[in-house]
Computed example of a mutant assay.
Amino acid sequence: MTPLVVVLNVTLCFAGFAALALSLDRHHREALAGRVPAGRVLPLRAAGWALLALSLAGAVAWEGLNFGPVQWIGALTGGALLVVLVLSYRPAWLRPAALLALPLGLAVVPAILLAFAH
Results as ranks from 00 to 15, higher is better:
L51E: 02
A115V: 14
L8I: 06
H27C: 10
I112V: 15
V6F: 15
A92K: 09
W62Y: 13
A18W: 00
V41C: 11
A98Q: 07
L32H: 05
V10C: 07
A19S: 14
G105A: 11
L42A: 07
A117E: 12
A31P: 04
C13P: 01
R29T: 04
F17S: 00
P37I: 07
A75K: 00
P69R: 09
P37Q: 07
L8M: 03
V108A: 12
L113Q: 11
L102F: 06
V84Y: 11
L76N: 00
L114W: 10
R95H: 11
H27L: 05
L32I: 06
P69W: 07
A61R: 10
M1A: 10
P110F: 12
V7Y: 11
N9V: 01
E63G: 02
A38R: 10
A46K: 14
L106T: 02
C13K: 00
A117M: 13
W72P: 00
E30N: 09
A92Q: 01
L106M: 10
T11F: 15
A92D: 12
G78C: 03
A61G: 02
P69S: 08
P43M: 14
L102Y: 15
V84R: 12
R26Y: 07
G34W: 15
T11P: 11
N66A: 09
P69N: 13
F67R: 08
V41M: 04
A15C: 08
